[in-house]
């Protein structure tokens, strides 16, 4: 079976003044069409390098990155990207910001059609009525919504999200998780999400990949079967707690703070009761 995204045996090193700095060493990743993979790992382990490889912004020293069984040799219009920094262009309105990718990849599309497409997406994420505002007039969460619209406006097959919710407060972030899932149901894409938030990874993704410390290899892969709509309550089940536990242990292994044995099984469905004082002193 061919996967939409197939990364095999990728090694890469950056050239620095102190000699080569290996960042990736044996990276494996397969994402089926329509899948949503989250990538977690210690800071500086090369997660952003991974996004640049998939986007075709750079090529690996060794190994292959394939989209549709085809080797990625350069940027392609079938990829959309969103970053932690929403990078909206301050001199454009929100609508024109969202239209930007269409100006580049679908220049034949009429302006009216481009506008309709952008308006449609903005409506989906709840930004109706903000089309003519400038980015500086919007809150951080709203800007990130607009940024998501821009990354999807040209109907990319692959959406690369590099910590898109990292700079948002917890409540806004959870709102945006839901927005992202809604978008995915309306605008099918195959997603790769780089994140530091383990809850985010198990809530959004159907596959979580743990990368080791630099030079990174694929250390652990967790599949999360999905059925039916997701709610935030799913994060507070014993099953979710167990998944988080395993992932946390894997991160500690990656950071070199825990031995590489499997996490102590905690299948006990009874949640551990924390003693809460009845009256505050």
């Amino acid at each position: 079976m061919t996967h939409l995204i197939d990364i095999a045996g990728v090694r890469h090193a950056y050239t620095t003044a102190e000699g080569p700095l290996p960042v990736l060493d044996g990276l494996e990743m397969q994402v089926p069409k329509g899948g949503f993979t989250a990538v977690v790992g210690p800071s500086g382990c090369g997660k952003s390098t991974l996004t640049r490889l998939v986007a075709g912004l750079m090529r690996p020293d060794e190994g292959t990155v394939q989209l549709h069984g085809e080797k990625v040799t350069g940027p392609r219009a079938t990829v959309g990207m969103a970053f932690q920094n929403p990078v909206l262009l301050e001199w454009r309105t929100i609508l024109k910001n969202v239209m930007l990718p269409l100006e580049i990849v679908s220049s034949k599309m009429s302006r009216a059609a481009q506008e309709d497409r952008a308006r449609h997406l903005l409506k989906l994420v709840g930004l109706e009525g903000f089309e003519d505002k400038r980015p500086s007039e919007l809150s951080g969460g709203m800007r990130q919504r607009a940024s998501l619209c821009r990354s999807l406006v040209h109907k990319p097959e692959v959406l690369i999200l590099d910590e898109p919710f990292g700079a948002l407060d917890a409540f806004t972030r959870e709102d945006l998780w839901q927005t992202l899932l809604d978008l995915k149901s309306q605008e099918p894409f195959t997603g790769v999400l780089i994140t530091h938030d383990l809850r985010e990874s198990i809530f959004l993704a159907d596959q979580v990949i743990v990368m080791s410390a630099r030079p990174a290899r694929t250390q652990y892969v967790m599949d999360i079967p999905r059925s039916g709509p997701r709610t935030l309550d799913d994060l507070y089940t014993p099953e979710a707690a167990e998944r988080l536990n395993i992932l946390r242990h894997q991160i500690e292994v990656a950071q070199g703070r825990a031995p590489a044995e499997p996490a102590e099984p905690r299948i006990d469905p009874e949640p551990t009761e924390r003693a809460v004082p009845e009256t505050l002193p």
Partner: peptide, 13 residues
């Protein structure tokens, strides 16, 4: 910022 370049470069601009 490199991200500004990247959003357009990733589209083949």
């Amino acid at each position: 910022e490199p991200e500004y370049r990247d959003i357009l470069r990733a589209l083949g601009a």
